[in-house]
Design a binder for these strands. Sequence first.
RNA 1: GUCGGAGUGGCGGAAUUGGCAGACGCGCUAGACUAAGGAUCUAGUGCCCGUUAAGGGUGUGGGGGUUCAAGUCCCCCCUCCGACACCA
Length: 945
Amino acid sequence: MSASSSGPDNEVGESRPLFRYDAQLAEQIETTWQQRWAADNTYRVANLGSSNESDGDSSETPSKLFVMDMFPYPSGTGLHVGHPLGYIGTDVFARYKRMKGFNVLHTMGYDAFGLPAEEHARQTGEHPRVNTETNIANMQRQLDRLGLGHDKQRSIATTDVSFYRWTQWIFLQIFQSWYDSASRKARPIAQLEQLLADGERDTKSGQSWSEMGDVERRRELDEWRLAYLGEAPVNWCPALGTVLANEEVTADGRSERGNHPVFRRPMKQWMMRITAYADRLLEDLEALDWTDSIKTMQRNWIGRSEGAEIRFSTSEGAPIEVFTTRPDTLFGTTAMVLAPEHPLVDSLVVERWPEGTPPAWTGGASSPREAVDAYRRSAAELSDLERQENKSKTGVYLGANCAVPVNDKQVPIFIADYVLMGYGTGAVMSVPGQDQRDWDFATAFGIDIVRTVEPPSSFSGEAYVENGPAINSDFLNGLHIDEAKRSIIEWLEENGHGSRTVTYKLRDWLFSRQRYWGEPFPIVFDETGLALAVPEDQLPVELPELMDWAPRALDEESEPEPPLGRAEDWVQADYDLGDGTRTYMRELNTMPQWAGSCWYYLRYLDPDNEEYFVDPAVERYWMTSADEGIGGVDLYVGGVEHAVLHLLYSRFWHKVLYDLGHVSGPEPFQRLYNQGYIQAAAYQDDRGIYVDAEKVTEKDGVFLFEGLPVSRSFGKMGKSLKNSVTPDDMYSAYGADTLRLYEMFMGPLDQDRPWETKSVVGSHRLLQRVWRNLIDENTGLPTVVDDVPSEALNRLTHRTIAAVADAMEGLRFNSAIARITELNNELTRTGEPVPIEVARTLVLMLGPLVPHIAEELWERLGNQGSVVHESFPEADTTLLVDETVEIPVQVNGKVRSRVTMAANAENEILEQAALADKRIQELLEGKEIRKVIVIPDKMVNIVVS
RNA sequence: GUCGGAGUGGCGGAAUUGGCAGACGCGCUAGACUAAGGAUCUAGUGCCCGUUAAGGGUGUGGGGGUUCAAGUCCCCCCUCCGACACCA
């Protein structure tokens, strides 16, 4: 026994009954049952749908349910009590549904590749694999102690070679596909080759297929692939020695991990053409059972906006294309503004300032060229954050002009940093009358303002962005925004000045990392420098054992150098790709951490399959919805922090696999549920230093640490706030069941809640009272009796069953526990021996929440087998309503008395009884009854004047 | 700024379709058992008035409204949390 001194149950010697439910007994019970579950394979789940495991009787096949947690990164620091909240929630739900007759799949895996493992390894000098495996083992041990009912034989880690082999296989599927926008789906690249050869698709290069040589054809196909090498501006983080996806860079231009500076620069990198799926990713959100907030975040991230592309001819030759959502305001254009990095700037900028250039436009420079150079330099020095904070408009004139297509009006061309190169075309037609940013720019530079939408007479603001009739707009005058848009786009298209367009904020996904600890690409290069797929039957491409795997911290100017380049035996490989065995150069980058998490849920279904990434029949069984749903994981629980990244990438991969016929539905996660976070009080002394939260005491509302007052705040548990509470602390003080019960009782699963160690005892007391109601603390023998429960107790029991089941279905475990507590309080209150039927029901209802004590009680009550596979009690609906009900009687909406009536009494009877009540009669004395409202079985309200 | 979510006792939180606000737990108060209690058990506990009691008033962020009846529905406002942030 290892109960520590921190628990309340540390009895001195003999006074403690031998079978009192305390931390010691809890630990004994818990470890015993955990061993038995493991020995009995209690949580093994069969793939009933697949031919090899089917029991043959399909009519009896129970409905499937796939419950999943977002899998964790196996951190080396160990768990605190905040971590397992969601895991306990899914465990309770999975256990409940299993008892309701579902075939439930619930397991857990590890997202073990990625930067943190490597950072840790770099600091300790230990190989990432060793460190990763240690961490997984440690975390597994901590989770096991909670009694989570996972099917462990389905567990995977993304670092397993047998797993990442299939990650590579999926990459190849994507690499060997193109997006056919005509049929709106991915198709094998071989089909494209045919279409190009038949002339049914135009080549991107413009050259005809028949005239191309082998290399040109390969280059052409590479242009179409869903995974492609692209020269793109990337986020280069020298300190981490790698490039990062946009999502991994914070708003102030630093790495999310480590907070190192990040620089934008063009590099050749693997990209995933997720933008091809933008519309489908948007549309299919409708069918998902996700919260509106997550759907909104995804919509915002995809950022679809409809508008028009308009070409402006310039005084210096090359036309400028702009994107606008308000083509109807074209007549109000009084300037053209380009992003400082816009590629046309250099060809547009003129030799010297034109006659009469306002001084404010020159930036104080003697020539436009000088002004541009100086402006670009200062823009580059500002971080994104500084640009945000300083919203006053700056810019310089290029000396050139362009013509507004509708009326050939000449307007000046500027560069300004409020125009972003990364969105639309990097150029904006400036319409100050209808856009506040343009208004600010125009007023700063003395540019004309022409309103083209008439504001209401009451309008006193600057730019007017609401609807209204067009003015100063020739043939658009009088039209409201939507009509005006339609009309102008028609005109633009007829006259060759532009067209309807849709743009997205979503960009293609940067998929290369210059790291060691990630999946190697199954890609090699020949002498042309073009990529070739490693044949499927040659997978996996294993990571080489490398001693010098750490990325080198570099400076801004240096080129990224992937650590795999140092594996000299590995960088070259011999393959037979069709023309005999030859030597190729390997791709040296690795995949980002998101890769494994994009599809791990599919591998849970069939983790040992060597032939397929998942057997099609098995996939169909688990991923197809029994009702009309879109299919996918039935319940996916995790934190909101993955609202866009993981969930969007994963949806994208799933859709590709769907298009190619590898999975049966278009979406991976039917229902997504965001669990809240456990927060904890943290305390700072007067210097602002955090002090050990455990040693803080409260007196009269003042918090004291070593006698001195400290201030309290709430935040994430962790080392930095010195407020961690570990599961191990709770196990030794109360046991795992108490911890589970408390975490579920604290509040609804989707809400943040503050941890309060002092409140845990309440949950422990419930278990103690349940135990004592059924078991003699001295002998350990059950005290239940064979009697039939009283009418009242029977009704209460069945009402409780109904309420608990309802709460469990809705993941409202706090309410379920409250109702169970009420039933148990009633048993405690009467103090009589508990009828066996009620005892069984009570234990079964506790089964999902506190499995260990439930198993122990179940066995002590004389039952065989595990609670895990028992049926959840069914409520007898005839017992849900009492025979008599107490009806409140209101006078003018205030409860003044109560009458006890038979249930389902007629309205007239109720009314008469209410009016006959002595106290009501007193109150009605001298008043006139205007109306009597009777709600059957609920209440009577008498309205008097 | 835009979007999303939320405001209920000292605290965490309950309240089908509008129908007894505060279930359940923590804490607190009193008592029991104790050498002792930070264990356990019993009772009480929204706030105010009422010595106790009976009883009354008031009460779900604030202000209006609909209704016999509003935590719940409608309008306006405030506060807090989260996401995005010059997206043309």
